[in-house]
Amino acid sequence: MAGEVPDLHAQERTGTGKGAARAARREGMVPGIVFGGDVDPLPINIPFNKLLKSLKAGRFKSTLFNLKVDGHDDVRVICRDVQRDVVKDLPTHLDLMRLRRTTKINLFIPVEFINEEECPALRKGGVLTVIRNEVELVVTAGDIPETLTVDLAKLEDIGDTATISDIEIPAGAKLTITDRDFMICNVSAPSALKSDADDEDEDTDAAEVPVVGDEEGGEAADTESSEE
Rank of each mutant, 00 (worst) to 15 (best):
D179M: 04
S165R: 15
I158H: 00
T176P: 02
L155D: 05
I167K: 05
I158W: 05
T163P: 01
S165L: 15
E168S: 12
A153V: 09
C119Y: 02
L175N: 06
T140S: 14
D160V: 04
I131K: 14
I184K: 03
L175V: 08
T178L: 14
G126E: 03
D143A: 06
V111C: 09
T176W: 09
I164F: 00
T129S: 13
R180Q: 14
V150Q: 03
D179Q: 08
G125Y: 11
R123L: 15
V150I: 15
C119Q: 05
D179V: 02
T140M: 07
I164C: 06
L148M: 07
G159P: 07
E146L: 07
A173W: 04
E146K: 10
G126V: 01
S165T: 13
F182Q: 14
F182L: 13
F182N: 10
A153W: 07
E156T: 15
L137D: 03
N115V: 01
G159E: 02
P145V: 02
T163V: 12
T176K: 12
A153F: 08
T163G: 01
T147D: 06
I167N: 05
T161D: 12
C119E: 04
I158N: 00
E156W: 07
I169S: 03
E117H: 09
K154F: 08
C119I: 03
A173G: 04
F113V: 00
D181Q: 13
L152M: 14
K124R: 10
I164Q: 05
E134N: 11
D181E: 13
P120Q: 09
R123K: 15
E116M: 11
V111A: 06
K174G: 00
P120G: 08
V130L: 11
K174D: 05
D181M: 10
T147Y: 06
A141R: 00
I177S: 09
F182E: 03
R180I: 08
R123T: 13
V138H: 06
A141F: 01
N115K: 03
M183C: 08
A121P: 02
T161M: 12
T178F: 11
L122N: 14
D157P: 06
R180V: 11
G142Q: 05
I184Q: 04
D179S: 12
D157F: 15
R180Y: 11
